[in-house]
Design a protein around this nucleic acid. Sequence first.
DNA 1: ATTCAAAAACTAATCAATTTAGTCTTTACA
DNA 2: TGTAAAGACTAAATTGATTAGTTTTTGAAT
Lengths: 191, 191
Amino acid sequence: MAYPAQTDYPTIIATAQRLIERDGVEQLALASLASELGIKAPSLYRYVTNKTALLKGIVTITIQQLFETYSQALNTSADDPQNQMLAICHGHRQFAHAQPKNYALAFTAASAEQRADPASLVAMVLPVQAIMAQISGQEHSLSALRGMLGLIHGFILLELNQQLQRGGDLSAAFDFAVRSYLAGVATLASA
Amino acid sequence: MAYPAQTDYPTIIATAQRLIERDGVEQLALASLASELGIKAPSLYRYVTNKTALLKGIVTITIQQLFETYSQALNTSADDPQNQMLAICHGHRQFAHAQPKNYALAFTAASAEQRADPASLVAMVLPVQAIMAQISGQEHSLSALRGMLGLIHGFILLELNQQLQRGGDLSAAFDFAVRSYLAGVATLASA
DNA sequence: ATTCAAAAACTAATCAATTTAGTCTTTACA
DNA sequence: TGTAAAGACTAAATTGATTAGTTTTTGAAT
């Protein structure tokens, strides 16, 4: 029963994500964000308690979006576990490439207050672990999952941070690495 | 022919590394660093052009230290390429665990001005690629190397960022993942 | 011995950004 | 038609990096 809000939380987060993708996180000042929303910086404090909380909100939303990418990959993808897993890995990488700055922010937030809620990460990967179990066997499924997440995440970060600059087809290298890993997991499982 | 310096560049970097490890990068203020060195903040500007340059200096030194870890692993390690590679991977992980905050800073610096010189990274991994070639064959050695670096780096970052919190022996999982990957690379190479 | 100049540090001030305090404006509803 | 709550604003406080200008120390030349 009052003044009509000139913005709202989802808009703030979405706008912040857009600015981060355009200019980088370091450049994200509350003044610029507010200006982009047509308000002044102090007004943001009606929606977020401080900048750290804002960043954590961004991280949370980004993870949710990645989560949706996973769901889609799981639905649309192929018959056998190997191909399902490949679809997930490529989906993950595409997501990261589509919003590199937000992806990096989501997974390398320096301070603990900014990091994603662990529970949501677990929810995200449980179905993936089930598929991995078909490849690695139950016993190794958690370790195998962790290795795979490390592989795709690390590869992507090295790419995004310009640390794989020696040429060659990075998509092919990624595919090669994931296939190798899955093949190895399958081998060690049957041994 | 003058005032004796109360500090020097290497001391500044080493002290900054220590403070980062103790309190985190976000907490690294020039005033605290200066105070730790027994001087005032503006005096730091005689040694570094600005805070960004300081951070880049820290990153550079940290990478050099990791480089030395690699050299040691390469010297002391075993006969066959698989075991040499394992030694490198475990050495890398131990280094990261010994100085997690500086490791994360070195490899996830948001802005390009803070990142390590690409050439030094190449120099660091060339000998590793030679070993990888013995496992994967020349043709795949670069892709296989990239995958391995991604795997160990990603796994370590997930660990350090508390994103592998579901229990279990992480050292064992790391070992399992690396062995799986190497086995897979060897398999695909001979195919 | 004294002075000079350069190096290095200091204090004080500026600038940029987040955050807080207090005030004004809009609008739904009695 | 008035009023209270929500939302935004301006102004000011805070914190941290950076700059300007000044002072201190000391080795070397007179």
